[in-house]
Amino acid sequence: MHKRSGVAIILASLLFGCASQPSGQQGERLDLGDSARVSRLFAYPNNCSVICYRDWTLEQTVQHYLEQSLARDGYADARVTIHRQGERLYADFAGTPKGYGQPLKQLLDAGDLAYDGANQLNRDGKWQYDWYFFLPLGMALDNRKSVELLHFPPDYSLTQAQDYLRSSTTDRWAALLVSNGVPATQTPAYQTIVDIAPIAAPANAGSALQGVYGYFNDYQQRMVRELSAGKGGASLPMVAFGSPVRDWVKQQYGVQLAVLGLGRIEAAPGQQVSVLGANHPSYIWYAADPANNQGSQAKADATGIRVMGQDLSAACWQADMGRQPAGDPQQTLASCTQKWQVTDQLQTCELFYVSVRKLKPGDAEAKCQAS
């Protein structure tokens, strides 16, 4: 009798100890859904065409993206493991703050809306054979600094890299953030992306995607509302890249944005978000092409330097507002524009020749000083 009572006491104390541990320290479990849902939302299999580029299981695929999120949130010692129980999959987090799984749950719930839109797009005969449904997986979930509104992810980010932030677009913008004082290891926290079309497609598919955005309105608005909500009460700053995205902002929120035009949208009742219009990060290669400047190399260089100044100014605003979301957005923009287009014109010129024309730093400096 006493022996059984002692065992019961020990078991009870163990259960109480587990229950009283802070969530994320002892562990936090998130129900991801059944395998069919998880396969849809994690674009599984990511890169298979008879022979798989990476022959991963569904569990390995999910773990890959969630480990990216942990790293980008700065939780180097945290861990996640994926378990299957029957048809359901669970993510078990350890070493994360309490409630860490909530932003992931929000993303997946929004993803259900996006999947419904993609299905309807297909039923209407508008889906194309080389498109892939792709949510912004692997982003920072807990320590976001700013939000980036973009058009669509390139297909190779899914099929080759399996990394939403691996593209020429995101790489270039990360470099501009670094030029504005953001440590390279922290740029992912600033690059929390909402694509208005959650479709991985060939990089030249922009025109083909016109007319699909309305299928994703519920998803888009929910993502903007949830991702722009900051921790301390101040909303996170947002950058709208490229004319299709700026046009979408005008259509959805009634705010017209030029390049380096500043506006405010109401993401939810009482939730005002500062939004800056910007060039698409890849636009500079089009703008600085001599073929688009009457065949003149000099005109192409001048255009490229002007666009570089705009891009550096936008990245400066994003970096400064990301560090201090309660700051004055208009004053920040004025300061950033003054810096890169007036005070530091020489550095703007040099960065253009190094990053776009691929000159060595010394050659770029000499060329800018001579002009």
Rank of each mutant, 00 (worst) to 15 (best):
K358A: 11
D55L: 07
N204V: 10
Q25A: 13
R72N: 10
Q297Y: 12
Q331Y: 05
E148T: 12
A370P: 05
V178T: 13
R72I: 08
V7D: 06
G33M: 07
R225F: 05
T187Q: 05
Y44I: 01
G270V: 12
C368V: 09
G263Q: 06
L58F: 09
A203E: 13
G6S: 11
A287F: 03
S168C: 00
H83S: 10
A278H: 04
L58Q: 07
D195V: 03
S274E: 09
Q297N: 12
I51D: 08
A268T: 11
R88W: 06
Q251A: 15
V62D: 02
Q338R: 13
K3N: 08
V62G: 01
I305H: 02
N204L: 12
V147D: 02
M1D: 12
G295A: 11
R79G: 13
Q338F: 11
L32T: 04
Y65N: 01
P97H: 10
Q60W: 08
P22G: 07
D130T: 11
Y75M: 13
G327D: 15
L137D: 02
A197R: 04
Y132M: 06
C336E: 01
Q106L: 14
D124I: 09
L30D: 03
Q331K: 14
P153D: 06
N46M: 11
R84N: 05
S167W: 03
G99P: 07
A200F: 03
I10Y: 09
G214D: 14
Y115Q: 11
Q220I: 15
Y219W: 15
Q68E: 13
G138A: 09
A189H: 04
L260T: 06
A140G: 07
D311N: 15
W340H: 09
V307S: 01
T61Y: 02
H280K: 05
V178W: 03
R40F: 00
A8R: 13
L58R: 04
T192M: 05
I305A: 02
Q186N: 11
A12H: 06
Q271S: 08
Q331F: 00
H83T: 11
A114Q: 01
Q338E: 14
L209H: 09
R222L: 14
A19F: 13
Q330G: 12
Y132R: 15
Y100D: 02
L113M: 15
G125W: 08
A43S: 15
R54H: 14
A94D: 07
P244I: 05
Q210W: 09
G206W: 00
L165S: 06
T169V: 09
I9L: 14
A12S: 14
D289E: 14
P136F: 09
Y190D: 01
T185F: 00
T348M: 05
Q256A: 13
Y190L: 06
G362I: 03
R357Q: 14
V194N: 04
G206P: 02
S235C: 13
Q272N: 10
T61V: 07
R37I: 08
G230F: 04
V182E: 01
R357G: 03
S179Y: 11
S296I: 08
V38F: 05
Y75Q: 05
S207Q: 12
A8M: 12
G309R: 01
D289C: 05
T170K: 04
K145R: 15
V80R: 01
L177V: 09
L135P: 00
R72M: 09
L15G: 14
Y129V: 08
P188E: 06
Q345P: 00
P361V: 07
G74Y: 08
